[in-house]
Amino acid sequence: MRPDRLLLLGAIVSLAACTAQLPVTEQDAPVVEERSQSLESERQTGEQKPATAKTYAYRTPSSSAGRSAVADLREKARLQTDQGKLNQAAALLERALRIQPRDALLWNQLADIRLRQKRYPQAESLARKSISLAGQQTRLKVRNWRMIATARQQSGNPEGAKRALRQAEQLSNQ
């Protein structure tokens, strides 16, 4: 090992010692290596630390952020849906999605509205989006597959509908 590398390693180890909570994880290892590259390759890869950029102050958002706002919009959308005001309901759900874009239930509700509007390909895509974000919410996934089956059936694709129903069954048997 070259001396400058040792020096850097030393510096990092001592830093780690100072702040006992800061573990030297695997991610830290390449840092040492990168700093030891020749200046020429640093220029090439843009490794030199820019004087302008500071470390991003990242704050974990609380999981409840916007929960009551989304619940409020969801409820309003439900009321509008019941009254047959489907476009208004969709607009409300879109607002809710801007607050919680990864809420699988919102995507499912939007799919439901498009299904009622007979916009089948859109309903299917939205349901698939909901599935992709549903994680462990099996019942929601099942509901989405059933919607997909309906959408496919209605748009003249009974084979596809069967496949979707099979997916729904498999999931609900799990």
């Binding site: 890869t45 843009g46 990242y58």
Partner: peptide, 16 residues
């Protein structure tokens, strides 16, 4: 993290 844009590790926390 490790590739052509690894200088991002300087400015942004890994969990992003």
């Amino acid at each position: 993290r490790i590739g052509t844009a690894r200088s991002l590790a300087w400015s942004f926390p890994d969990e992003l």
